[in-house]
Amino acid sequence: MRQDSFSDAGFEKYRKKTRKEQFLEEMETIIPWKELTAAIEPFYPKPEGAGRRPIGIERMLRIHFIQHWFNLSDPAAEEALYDSRSLRHFVGIDLGRESVPDETTICKFRHLMEKHNLGDQLFHLVNQYLQENGLKVSRGTIVDASIISAPSSTKNKKKERDPEMRQTRKGNQWYFGMKAHIGVDSRTKLIHSVVATSANVHDSQVLPDLLHGEETRVWGDSAYSGQAQAIADHAPRAKDFTQARGSRNRKLTDEDRARNRNKSRVRAKVEHQFGIIKRQFGFSKVRYRGLDKNAHRLFVACALSNLVTAKRVLLKRSVPRLQASCA
């Protein structure tokens, strides 16, 4: 347990623990820091000679996660750490002894993560950790996709839109950006598969990449209708529970609509994950140019969203361990 420094202790008689502090304490408890930092260690700079020693991996990873949880850019993350005592406490910074890592250091760590595709690795490590704690993937998968907007204006230095982003139409509305495709377990609501594409890629094109192959049921909205063969090829035992879609020549019957409503009760679980990623974490718009950088952000966001979803189960399992360590 960290000890508060004299500069942070203060004399705040009526201070109340905020929801942010409560959230950070919960994340502190349930995140497998040792395993995640071990994955980054082979790529992290080693101290050489008498120069300045690099900042610890875990500290930089904590700052990286803070950027995702609170939707902070590199400069905003530096400012937030100076401004918020709860964030400094989570990262382990004592302003009485040291300064906050500057925005350049934060940016370099993010680029290192992106260069070595460590977001994808962290996503799989988190899922492995969740399985070891009893949150295993079941026999049902819900597939869905959501558009993440990008700036469509050309009023920038290069006088052009991001060349890796595309536009698509949904209903009568046009969107420009990327698309996040996820496969979610129907029992635990955990994301087990993630794919990032430009917005013009149809949802059904990445369906095989969202299945783990052991499904007995696959749910999806009407964008995945007519994909029975693709489901059979990649999940032979799975039944197709995607939404039926009507057409001009074939109207949906009352029985079809009743089946769709029943399917929607299960399919709605995927929206919980998009709610965390886009509303709680603020990832409704891209922050960087290029698909790879934003795909890395998506992989890390999905890993952290899984931890938030599994928070109650993980906290219950951590209580006996904490009691034993205090004994």
Rank of each mutant, 00 (worst) to 15 (best):
K251L: 11
G213I: 01
P45I: 08
S225H: 13
L81V: 06
W174M: 11
H124N: 10
R88E: 05
G51H: 10
A303Y: 01
L72H: 05
F65S: 04
G282Q: 08
Y82C: 07
C107N: 14
E12G: 09
A228H: 10
V218C: 08
I142M: 10
K293D: 02
P208V: 08
E35I: 09
G177L: 03
L122Y: 01
A196E: 03
I231V: 09
N294C: 11
G290H: 05
V300I: 15
D102L: 06
Q167M: 12
D4G: 08
W219L: 08
A145H: 05
D209S: 15
A295E: 11
D209I: 00
L24G: 09
D203W: 05
Q227W: 02
W33R: 07
S86G: 00
S84I: 05
H272T: 15
T141G: 03
R250A: 12
S198P: 01
D8K: 12
R217A: 15
W219K: 02
D240L: 04
L315M: 15
A235L: 06
V100L: 02
I277C: 09
M1C: 07
L210F: 03
D4I: 12
L314G: 06
S149F: 00
L36E: 01
E98G: 04
E25P: 00
S193E: 10
I106Y: 01
I191K: 00
N117G: 09
R217Q: 14
A50H: 14
V91W: 02
L190M: 13
A76D: 10
L95N: 03
S193N: 12
E25Q: 13
R53H: 15
K239E: 15
P151A: 11
I93Q: 03
R289S: 13
D74A: 04
L307G: 02
M60C: 10
N200D: 15
R257G: 00
S149W: 00
D83R: 07
D74W: 03
R166Y: 07
G119L: 04
S193P: 04
I63E: 01
P163G: 01
Q173S: 11
L118C: 04
S99I: 00
Q229F: 11
R62N: 07
G96I: 06
T105W: 03
Q131F: 00
E164Y: 08
R52N: 12
Q273M: 13
L207W: 02
F43A: 03
K34A: 14
N294E: 11
R85E: 12
R312I: 08
R161H: 02
L315H: 10
R166P: 00
D240V: 05
D83N: 11
D102M: 08
P45K: 04
V126A: 04
L298R: 01
K189E: 15
G119F: 02
N306V: 03
C326H: 11
D162W: 07
E21T: 14
K170D: 05
T242M: 02
R161G: 01
E26H: 14
A76C: 03
F109M: 05
G49N: 13
N71A: 10
L122Q: 09
A223D: 10
L307M: 12
